[in-house]
Design a protein around this nucleic acid. Sequence first.
RNA 1: GCCUCAGUAGCUCAGUUGGCCAGAGCAGACGACUUGUAAUCGUCAGGUCGGGGGUUCGAAUCCCUCCUGGGGCUCCA
Length: 572
Amino acid sequence: MTLENIEEYRNKLRHSAAHLLAEAVLKIHPEAKLTIGPPIKDGFYYDFDINVTFSPQDLASIERDMKRSIKRNTKFEGKELTKNEALEIYKHNPYKIEIINSMPKGEIITEYSHSDGKFKDLCKGGHLDKTGEIKAVKLLSNAGAYWRGDEKNKMLQRIYGTAWESEELQQEYLEKRKQAIESDHRKLGTSLNLFFLDPISPANPFFLPEGTFVYNKLIDFVRKLYEKYDYKEVITPQIFSTDLWKKSGHYDFYLENMYMMEIDDHEVGVKPMNCPAHAIIFQSTLRSYRDLPLRIADFGRLHRYERSGVTHGLTRVRSFSQDDAHIFCDQKDAGSEIKNFLEMLKESYTAFGFNQPRLTLSLRPEKRAGSDDMWDIAEEQLRTVLEDFDETFEEIEGEGAFYGPKIDIFIPDVMGREWQLGTAQMDFSLPERFNLEFINNQGEKERPVVIHRAMLGSIERFIGILLEHTGGDLPFWLAPNQINIIPITDSHLDYSKDLYKKLKTKGLRVNIDYSNERLGQKIRNSEIKKIPVMLVIGDKEKDSKSASVRTRKYGDLGTLNENQLIEKLLSF
RNA sequence: GCCUCAGUAGCUCAGUUGGCCAGAGCAGACGACUUGUAAUCGUCAGGUCGGGGGUUCGAAUCCCUCCUGGGGCUCCA
């Protein structure tokens, strides 16, 4: 089977498993109303409208019943229904009625059954021939889910499961899932002493010295790129009068996510974004077309109130900073600015081994600012640049921000969930609201466009994703501790200290393990802390002024003399 | 915010038909050992059993409530 065929087959398999799940639930709870049960990545779910909740024991017994159904190996059979028939059969199920009524005219309505017709479900199809083809199935969890994903609707009970064409594949998948937990950035954050979270300030991470080192090193990395790509960094206030938020529109559109307070009888808000501050900087002086494009960068700390229940480790927090910048330019230059940005982004992502980010282009939504002409131009600019950059990008209708179209860059975490890191968003609204102008080469006033862009995105989120992708083995240049010198006994301490000084003066981040442990134990400790390089110093090394080099990435490199050693280390 | 599961030492966890002063391993401190590539031995210290309230002669264990976290939903200008 080709890859596509396997995917198609698995979708059928999982969709079929969802039907077995519905069948089993109905046996225990005949009053449950069926809604939908699609296949998803690695599994499937089914949503039930039911007044009870499922316990882990319930899931186990439901799973057993599904397996009995598999054993009976009955056929999946489809049957066409007229709209009237369908409406009659499902008259007690408002969800199915809604589905039937929302179908376009002329679409064929079908119902699928198995267990010799004892179970039937309105369904567009896509099933296996017989239930026995499901070789492995396991229910994983249950959760609440709103009908049609809208929180104004009733909350349904969802059961998630996984299903595979062989028991081995399922075992493999479950094993992979278990191992993924080891690379979870929250776990690594604790074991590597990088950061932690405390209920005293929920969703606001504390960065420990080594985590802070990584944080600052990432910012250094971005600053070097800013120099190369001609960005100007600024520092802007943390708190602004409500006047600013009213002008920018945040007061109308973003207030529920903002931290507001009252000072001197005046309402002020902590910034959730840098853009209004950058607009203030832009208009702080008269701007000429010769000043453009003006690229203003800001690592300012942002605070956004995220609803409880949506926060997550470092990847969704309430306080963070971004490698944020705003480009003020003539509309006709926007395309090349985006192009430059994507080049810089590629340069940075490659450095971290993120070789295949997923890119999306989000197009105009229903409610929007700016004229259709502006949207036409902007969308075409983005599309042209993207086609050149990565032909696999995906266009999404209606998903653009109200102020302009945007490009988003996604990288998955260790559980396969995707997170947005980089973004480039065109903005027609901000220049209007702040009445931004520059003097063009005709001596006339002209309105610039603003491009919001971030490469790494939130530094917090980036660290989280990077940790998961590296399993905690950060690149050598980013590792807070690069080298661990391990003297075998006290008698090797003097030479270890000599070596320490030599490496330190080369700018390498090095430590000596003074602990009174055996070699094996010291090596183990160093491995657990994922320190990239270990230098073992014994009699041999001391006498020949050398070190026995053990690395995490390249294994044992044998004994190197001081010059060889320094050369090697600087090459990492 | 909603559904669901969970919270015992710094970390990983044991401990429930309610019953002696709540346990282990790792990490930590101290001591012995002076060691050749992923765990040397011993001693000590460390806990409001997430917080509060209740039931009970008695609560880590049962009930209520709040907080925080995990998995989802929703949201993500």
